[in-house]
Design a protein around this nucleic acid. Structure first.
Lengths: 206, 206
DNA sequence: CTTTATTTATCACGGGTGTGATACTTCCCG
DNA sequence: CGGGAAGTATCACACCCGTGATAAATAAAG
């Protein structure tokens, strides 16, 4: 009985259109009408896939976090095959954290949208739990990487890993925000240099 | 001929009302009407002090940055009287950076509003230069404090001060955003502990 | 008191928003 | 072929927005 349309693909298209509008004009300018126009869809069609505007917003934020998580999981899988050489492990860690930094236009766009949604989630109860889960997830990842580095002897043994998790998480968040919002002040190379320097400072003395 | 009203005080009241609305409901909910209602003013009165909505927004963001800058300048003046003892200097530095962290409700509110305006400035040309100036100012301050610490021998001599400026700036920004948005994950004591740990890691070996 | 400029207060307009309701079209299945 | 679900397309409504225009109230100055 149904028409031959893949609803999931449609929803993904709509979310992509929403991201383009949010990136270009900011999240406050995102509305059913602007997104429908960007997706070259009729508002009625859009509303057939998203019952309400809050539902669309939540779906979009969730989709964005899922994409980041998927990228990170791929890196985690790749890093699992790495050995225990401290130097190689540190390089893997830099690659991992690089997924959270605006090293190219795609990640820069993602970070800007993440920033907009984070700000919106502060006052939008529908998005609060997503922001909280994302924050906890970032900490868990950083903690996991630091733990692995510590076990391989790539980190001094006299540091508090919980505190270092907080410090590195803050560093990555701040670096991402700064480099995304002010690419003329912080470029991609500087981002990587900062992360490498941080990990080197955590290394045990020779 | 005029009525006895201090225009500057009125503008400050309006800006305070705007901050309250932005803090409670988010910057997108800020409008001439909501701010006027919060300030218990008529829209006509509000428009007598701010010709347009963009002008109000810019004035408010500028006022917020000025307040932070004034607080920091007070700390700078106080720190100028400090001696050259590395330990005391580090304590002064922590106090200084603490002004940028959500250590109490007032600073937490300020940080949330700063975050909202930063996000808005990304797509609002009227606010872009303010955000840029703020970012450069933060770097300049961090650089200045690090320079003073280095001259007093409170920092290892084998570090790149420019890179360390970027690293510490990112750390402070990220810590501020994280603690402001997720106070249940990062409390005030953790903030200070992170900053102290960072400065200690920069100290020269005994 | 009259003048005059500041301040306060309303109104109306065009435009954007989310949403409920309602048709119309398309196309698979029985 | 006909029934009916899935998808597309419009309308209308109430609400909020910024702003231009205009009027009324206030109080100091002449």
């Amino acid at each position: 009985m149904p028409k031959q349309v893949d609803p999931d693909a449609r929803r993904a298209d709509v979310v992509d259109a929403l991201f383009r509008v949010a990136l270009r004009e900011g999240l406050p300018r995102v509305s059913l009408r602007t997104v429908a126009a960007e997706a070259e869809l009729n508002i009625g069609s859009l509303r057939h896939y998203f019952a309400s505007q809050p539902e669309l917003m939540r779906f979009a934020m969730s989709a964005m976090l899922d994409r980041v998580a998927a990228r990170l999981m791929r890196r985690v899988a790749a890093a699992a095959e790495a050995g225990d050489d401290p130097e190689a492990l540190r390089a893997r860690a830099v690659e991992m954290f690089g997924e959270l930094l605006p090293l190219d236009d795609a990640r820069r766009a993602e970070l800007m949208i993440f920033l907009d949604f984070s700000a919106a989630a502060r006052t939008d109860p529908d998005l609060a739990d997503l922001a909280r889960t994302a924050a906890r997830g970032a900490r868990a990842l950083v903690r996991r990487v630091l733990g692995r580095l510590a076990r391989a002897g790539a980190i001094r043994s006299d540091v508090d890993l919980d505190l270092e998790t907080e410090r590195l998480t803050a560093l990555l968040d701040g670096l991402g925000v700064n480099a995304a919002l002010h690419p003329d002040l912080v470029d991609a190379d500087t981002c990587l240099a900062v992360v490498r320097t941080h990990l080197r400072h955590l290394a045990p003395p020779p």
